[in-house]
Amino acid sequence: MIDKIFFNFTRLSALLILVIVAWIFVVLFNHSLEAMNTFGLDFITRDEWAPNLDKFGAYAAILGSIISTTLAMLLAVPIAVGVAIFLSEIAHDKIKGFFGVSVELLAAIPSVIYGMWGLFYFVPIIRDIFGGLGIGLLAAGIVLAIMILPFMAAVTRDAMNTTPDILKESAYALGGTQWDVIKDIIIPYAKAGIIGSLILALGRAIGETMAVTFVMGNVHHVPGSILDPTTSIPVTLANEFTEADSSLYFSSLFGLALTLLIMSFVVIAVAKFYFLRKARRAS
């Protein structure tokens, strides 16, 4: 009797997660219907975002999300892979432990703090070097890169560490250098895991709000250069959700939220179900 009740409690809790996810999609979809019916495809292809005219085109925000995350990936991936190589192959045990834990702890620092640092310390540097406002795509890309770096480096290192020692030793036994072993053995062996880790970090970067909201500006225009302020989906949501004053405005914001959810869902699913699963099967 109690056994059955306990079982049902646990099962209901487990099913709840599926219910919540489905519910999120349904709610976001329902609330964005009005915008979809009004604008159709124009919603994602037009960049006119004019609340006073009740016109909402999310093109600039979507583009801003894509460019800022691409920029962040371009900057973060080479450094993260370098850090991962350093942590898994180069550093001596003591440094490895200390540095490895530091990286993991830095990954836990709230992103609002990265954003705040970016606003007060990095934006002025960009302003001094390039002129202009300082806030914009470049600042957002760099701050996002720094914020995602610890997580990316930590998971990439974990992927590299799955390479069996004996396989590395076999390459050393043939006269390989450390770099030979890294590029010929570790990277090919852990390829699926490394790519999966990088894409997973990308999935997080797309949805990241606070690190970029401080430094992106919030201008619904397709930027002329990466120095211009623009917006992205999370930035628009963070800035405008509490200001929306018409039902179409709200609906458009929900449409943005749905777009963001789908984008990150797809990216994370590809990372998890294609690459990381393949990596797990291989090892």
């Binding site: 004996i166 396989l167 030793e169 076999s170 390459a171 050393y172 036994a173 053995i185 090919p188 062996y189």
Partner: peptide
């Protein structure tokens, strides 16, 4: 190591 080669406890085919 090119003069003194080694074979290990387990087969170690490289990922290639």
């Amino acid at each position: 190591r090119t003069k003194i080669g080694m074979i290990f406890q387990k087969p170690t085919a490289f990922p290639m």
